[in-house]
């Protein structure tokens, strides 16, 4: 209990929030890293997954990439990238590693979602004279949306976790508060940083949970509106 009280005191100290390397700056870095990398990963993964899913090709790749992503340690990739010429690029290694680990869940879920669309519905749409792109945007994507979104949610949680580990390899973000705490042998700071990271991760997860609660109605409306 003593440590928790100390961690609380550390968090309550306004000096720790402001300035260079303060909680405010780290929080902003973490948020920017997560959001920017989520957008990049979606731009990279979703078009590929949607096209592969539409054509029904490359399924083995799309499904197995998640298993590969799980076996490769995030920390190892971060350090490997740091030692390449990319390491001189400031947050370069962090961004690349974050995108690399966010792509597999996006790809797998979107592909599985696209293939999971009822074949009867697809055939009916074809029979009504829909072209490939029409079929993709008006039938397959709306129906696959729940799984695509759960992929985005998994990717977001993964991004928050990877951005934290990036601190071990010199990247910015909330993880830096933890690593700085370890360097100072300050358990209160380590615990305070960990609490911040955990709360941040749970907030991201919670945000998606809330969005998901509202999603079914919205998805149905979108389908009716366009179809």
């Amino acid at each position: 209990m003593k440590t928790l009280a100390d961690a609380w005191d550390w968090l309550a100290d306004s000096a720790h929030w402001a300035g260079d390397g303060g909680i405010g700056q780290r929080l902003a870095q973490h948020l920017v890293l997560t959001v920017v990398c989520l957008i990049i990963s979606c731009l990279v993964a979703l078009p590929v997954a949607l096209v592969l899913g539409h054509l029904g090709r490359g399924g083995a790749l799309a499904v197995n990439i998640s298993n590969v992503g799980r076996a490769v340690p995030t920390f190892a990739v971060l350090v490997l990238l740091l030692l390449t010429p990319l390491g001189k690029w400031g947050e370069g290694p962090t961004v690349v590693a974050l995108v690399l680990f966010a792509v597999p869940p996006l790809l797998t879920n979107a592909y599985v979602g696209m293939r999971g669309v009822d074949r009867g519905v697809v055939q009916a749409a074809r029979g009504m004279g829909m072209t490939g792109p029409q079929l993709l945007w008006r039938v397959e994507v709306p129906l696959a949306l729940p799984l695509i979104m759960s992929g985005v949610r998994l990717a977001a949680v993964q991004l928050v976790a990877t951005a934290t580990i990036a601190a071990l390899a010199g990247g910015g973000g909330l993880g830096r508060i933890i690593t700085a705490g370890f360097n100072l042998a300050s358990t209160p700071q380590v615990v305070a940083g960990a609490v911040l990271v955990a709360v941040f991760a749970l907030l991201v997860e919670g945000l998606f949970e809330i969005a998901e609660r509202f999603a079914p109605g919205w998805a149905r409306r979108a389908r009716n509106g366009k179809g």
């Binding site: 440590t3 928790l4 949680v157 928050v160 976790a161 934290t164 580990i165 601190a167 071990l168 993880g175 933890i178 705490g181 370890f182 358990t187 380590v190 615990v191 940083g193 960990a194 609490v195 990271v197 955990a198 991760a201 749970l202 997860e205």
Partner: peptide, 18 residues
């Protein structure tokens, strides 16, 4: 279990430090 899984590994190890 979902809450536990959401907490990033570095934070989890740090929370167990005390």
């Amino acid at each position: 279990t979902t809450v536990l899984y959401t907490i990033p590994s570095l934070a989890m190890f740090s929370l167990l430090l005390p």
